[in-house]
Design a protein around this nucleic acid. Sequence first.
DNA 1: AGGTGTAGTTAGCGA
DNA 2: TCGCTAAGTACACCT
Lengths: 258, 258
Amino acid sequence: MRIIVADCSARYTGRLNASLDRAKRVLLIKADSSCLIFSELGSYKPLNWMTAPCTLHESVPQCSGNERAVNTGIVEAAEVDAADVTDDDALDNDCIPEKVITVCADKSDDVLAIDLWHIYSDQMHELGIDPGLVKDGVEDHLQHYLAEQIDRIGKGARLVRREYPTAIGPVDIMAIDAEGNHVAIEIKRHGGIDGVEQLTRYCTLLNRDPLLTPVRGIFAAQTITPQAKVLAEDRGFHCLILDYESMKHAESDTLTLF
Amino acid sequence: MRIIVADCSARYTGRLNASLDRAKRVLLIKADSSCLIFSELGSYKPLNWMTAPCTLHESVPQCSGNERAVNTGIVEAAEVDAADVTDDDALDNDCIPEKVITVCADKSDDVLAIDLWHIYSDQMHELGIDPGLVKDGVEDHLQHYLAEQIDRIGKGARLVRREYPTAIGPVDIMAIDAEGNHVAIEIKRHGGIDGVEQLTRYCTLLNRDPLLTPVRGIFAAQTITPQAKVLAEDRGFHCLILDYESMKHAESDTLTLF
DNA sequence: AGGTGTAGTTAGCGA
DNA sequence: TCGCTAAGTACACCT
């Protein structure tokens, strides 16, 4: 990982054009040449970036009639005090960048071009291989718990299967209620209109199958937006609020029974 | 912006739990205390992070019976060679972190806890205010061009207006075809099923208005997924592939006429 | 502040 | 690889 702090300007051309006026920013260049430009603003998303696979080209524009000693290499785990390089000609600093970095996407004609006007720091650190992120507790868990505690949709309900396959994608949970009718359940952490649309598509399709119909729909989520609730109930779906903690504890209770 | 390179481990607890085993990584801490953890892996998304508003707490765990001089402050634009700090007790390095950074979300109980086992570099750079990103040329341009070149949907078509307002949101473009019937156009850069659903909602609503009905739907995009095409045509919508370059040039031609 | 739609989305999974 | 779905999505816009 190469870390550069510099006054820079940048232009991205690709699916859109996005440009950054000159300002002091942080650049991260990863081992695969992918490149991120950060400011103090915003969340984790960089202002501009290039994703791998890409090719990086770096050059030092020459100011005619004013040869200077410029750092062309990368200093390993040590800072470059670039001030000495440019202090000799403050005016030049505004017409010729100290370095130009161009990153081109390998599989498209996207280009990120960065002018480095003044480099405050440029360091390289070998990070090595990362063991990666271990996640625990997303929508999958809601699905897992509800599948185990299927009678939360009604007494006497039985689980058919999780990720019940259909031609247009898997239904989160398919169950059969006490009356023997099929129930398709769409699970969301936060239920919005799109989730209702999804459930609608599944139910419409499933109800064309004479072996399954009638298939009821249940829209289950930790929270459901008011609009989504109205839409769901307007389409005859039951809305079920899932209490993650309660479901988690219920599972613990189940486990202690064995 | 504070930039730390360190062997670290981290745990996030919030909407999910996500943990990182010990490895050498890059940490960015912004002026608002938001915090990003990067490895060489992945795209621009950090492995772990905390978004503002949040509060950062930093501490130096004390090894009982082994007082050491530890850097508690931040060094301005200069590196800390932390090796000297821990070299005296390599064993200790594995049981007590050199520093512990805890970042708590202000508006929830989300916590990102980072143990720094070995700090390679810790520098602070004042970036100042960023002029921000200037974007140019997204879906808005497609809408702009198609509105100007509305006969791309059929000879004799007339534009009613862009962003035609309805109770459930604006229709991208409303037009009237050569036969005098209304046409609702949904524009996407990449057309998927959700876009068809959106167009369906608009057309269903618009067709309830006796002054407008019949309203045809056109699904216009640079690319359309096969499933979306099937769904759109099944619902009686015409699919229109938009050629951005062609539309752009057509506009240039139009401009030269004046 | 909350809902809705877009994103140069990114990331993961299954066909 | 394509296509779909979730994401600690982020971000802009609008009510």
